[in-house]
Design a protein around this nucleic acid. Structure first.
Length: 107
DNA sequence: GGGCTGACGTGGC
DNA sequence: CGCCACGCCAGCC
């Protein structure tokens, strides 16, 4: 089911799991690629998560709620800042998301 | 099979 | 806070 997610993670393998997780990020909150990778069962495949997001259906999935571990927004995704601000997320003067405040912490 | 790329992460300065 | 080097690994040529 979910525990046996091991050996050769592929973009296809992660896609479904990643979508499930991203779809559950509360509005006004964000998650990092690394956190998603870990929740998916692949702590060292944050890059794969990013690859999946690149092909993610914007509009159907809140992919704008996914940022880097530094709070940096995704390159080549200019609308992200706007979408986040529309949810009440106040970006730092440098254009990054203050994870201290907005990182989704599962209670 | 070999080498470069990249929506990443961590640590050092 | 910013930049850089290094580690990471699937994907693509």
């Amino acid at each position: 089911m979910l525990s046996t997610e091991n050996s050769t993670p592929s973009e296809d393998s992660l896609r479904e799991v990643v979508y499930e997780i991203v779809a559950q990020i509360p509005q006004g909150r964000v998650l990092t690629y690394g956190a998603i990778a870990r929740l998916a069962g692949y702590p060292n495949h944050s890059r794969l998560v990013g690859r999946v997001m690149r092909g993610a259906p914007d509009g159907q999935l809140p992919c704008h709620r996914v940022v880097s571990a530094s709070g940096r927004l995704a390159p080549h995704y200019p609308a992200q800042a706007t979408l986040l601000e529309a949810e009440g997320v106040i970006l730092s003067p440098t254009g990054k998301v203050p994870l201290k405040t907005y990182l989704w912490q599962i209670d």
